[in-house]
Design a protein around this nucleic acid. Structure first.
Lengths: 364, 364
DNA sequence: TTGTACGCGTTATCAA
DNA sequence: TTGATAACGCGTACAA
């Protein structure tokens, strides 16, 4: 049996001195653990509260004790336990980010951008993947268990799940899509105006026969982009735009382009809901049907992924301000974390048309 | 002043019944909070520990009380607070995953794969980005504060930082690279044997003049791939392999290829440290120098990214078993979390050569 | 099986 | 400025 001897805790770093006023009996567990504020307090000869105060910003503490504490802290390699702090402060400084396999595949760097932005603000990113085996409901349940301070959804979140977060006053920001029911903030690219602009430019350049390759009947960004294009064209007197339904993937872009070409209907301009499908469309036209882009068909994408500028494609496309999107997304969230009373807000940032060589377009 | 009235906590869901044996006075904060095990206990008319027992697997509890508790829990929308549980159990079920901007850019889906695998095992992924403003030291300090159960490093981690984790007995697994000093587990693709195999195949197909486009002098995967290729070629009697130094990016592949071609030295086979540089190399040969791939040059990549199979490239490359890599990575980590005494272990999984049309290679 | 009481490592309140 | 002391919400010996 272990007796009540004054056993020092087995810390990663040895204690070089012994202090007397142990407020609490030292833990003599055989398991290695990181040192606590009590360890530091004992070594520095102060109370535990003094240690705690040293690690918050605006606390009143004398320089002398601060020095002692900081010295002891570095010697013991101490840093406040984030979990205990979260429990006490009822604030975890953790933000849940929700992604799906497709949202992650088609916009891989938004995760990094969001995380960099969050870290800059002292927040951390807990990643949640919505999959077929784990639907939105399960995921949100998990999110709530973790007492996150906020949620960023890079996927379409059912209104029911948004409401669950609202009930617990956890702010939600959806990224690049509108929130179902308007119960959450959203920050995204202004897809509608971007494709309206494309419609204008193409029309002014003489195009009269259009097609749109969509990314899915229920995909918000695809829908928005289609609305902009088709809506503006109608205003310009072009009533009939061919719609082909893809799935944001390369193969689907290719298939759509093939059926568009083979349909025999007149066609000079093909706008795609994203770059990857545009690549598929270009390859289909060139390799499978021996057509020229842009001479036979003008092809325009959306996203400006890294390969869009490469020689084989030289794709004219819309660049989304992803960096700024991430920044404002985090900003919006933080405001709501700090002030739960703020109403939902929608931010739309303009995309930038990057003119390359895949489309016959006249200079603006 | 608030008096000591028996005020019900303002939960998301109203209490439909009142129970008497409140072990603790109910919190009467005006702030909305999720309900606690005390709330459930009160409503179910049992003790808080009974509630707690209902939410762990092998606890002894009667069916009757379980029913009562579960009913109360659903009514109150209760789920155990993960943070409090972490504190009490000294186990957060959170794994830190470390990435850099480049590691994220060039292998975007490993994050998703890791997360899916972790979630399957009841673990969660806390993302840490190593950037220029936040180096490995800062990041590891943050990781330690968060009491994570383990670390997965998708980047080269300085030995010093690995040791800090070791001291606190936090297991570390590095992904797709060897751990500096051998102080951590690692699971990765067997780059060396993959490129040794490429060397064999190319040599047997008649190639005698080789170049390697590297991804960086300090990039572990690039180094491994170079070692395999050059080492095997030397064994075969090819002493002189041209090395061009790129940075894993498209432009660098293009530049490297241009200088290789323009150097005038004989060359028929170019092996690249990754697919993206291979794309750059192919485009340089075709578009900038009017050469044919594979007739003038055989080009081989590494990774089998999604665009490798597209018509313009048809890239012969090595597919890494990323799914299995993620699985074993998480497996290895969990074993170490459960049993801290296990020694570091290295797992190497074979890559698969995907033969397409960018290289003149005879069938195996 | 059930309930009591304590510890997990912090922050926050209040009196000194 | 400082130090007791009470939360924070949970798991868990221990006793009943």
């Amino acid at each position: 049996m272990a007796t009540e001897m004054d056993v020092e805790p087995l810390n990663a770093v040895c204690l070089s001195a012994m202090a007397k006023n142990t407020t609490r009996a030292p833990a003599n567990s055989s398991k290695l653990r990181s040192s606590t504020s009590y360890d530091v307090a004992r070594l520095a000869g102060v109370s535990q509260s003094a240690v705690s105060r040293c690690f918050e910003s605006g606390a009143s503490i004398s320089d002398k004790t601060r020095q002692k504490v900081l010295a002891a802290a570095t010697e013991l390699n101490y840093a406040p336990n984030a979990i205990a702090r979260s429990l006490a402060m009822r604030r975890s400084n953790i933000v849940a980010v929700l992604v799906t396999e497709t949202s992650a595949r088609h916009t891989p760097d938004i995760l990094m951008q969001l995380n960099v932005e969050l870290m800059r603000c002292g927040l951390h990113l807990l990643l949640f993947s919505i999959t077929q085996e784990t639907g939105p409901g399960d995921v949100i349940a998990n999110v709530l268990r973790h007492q996150v301070d906020g949620v960023i959804a890079c996927t379409t979140l059912p209104q029911e799940q948004i409401l669950r977060c609202n009930q617990l006053r956890i702010p939600v920001v959806v990224y690049n899509r509108v929130a179902a029911g308007g119960n959450a903030c959203s920050v995204g690219c202004d897809h509608v105006n971007a494709t309206r602009d494309i419609a204008d430019r193409l029309y002014r350049s003489g195009h009269r026969h259009f097609a749109f390759i969509a990314g899915g009947a229920a995909a918000p960004v695809s829908i928005q982009r289609q609305i902009g294009l088709v809506g503006r064209l109608q205003e310009l007197g072009v009533a009939d735009v061919a719609i082909a339904m893809g799935d944001f993937g390369y193969e689907s872009g290719r298939d759509c382009m093939l059926s568009l070409i083979d349909s025999g209907r007149p066609l000079t301009a093909v706008v795609c809901a994203n770059d990857v499908m545009a690549f598929g469309a270009m390859d289909a036209a060139r390799f499978d049907r021996g057509k020229s882009v842009p001479d036979d068909f003008s092809v325009i994408g959306f996203d400006d992924v890294s390969s869009a500028c490469r020689p084989p494609y030289q794709l004219t496309t819309v660049r989304q301000p992803t960096q700024e999107l991430a920044r404002q997304c985090v900003q919006l969230l933080i405001e709501r974390i700090e002030n739960k009373e703020l109403p939902p807000h929608v931010i739309l940032l303009p995309g930038e048309l990057i003119v390359r060589k895949s489309a016959r377009i006249e200079p603006a």
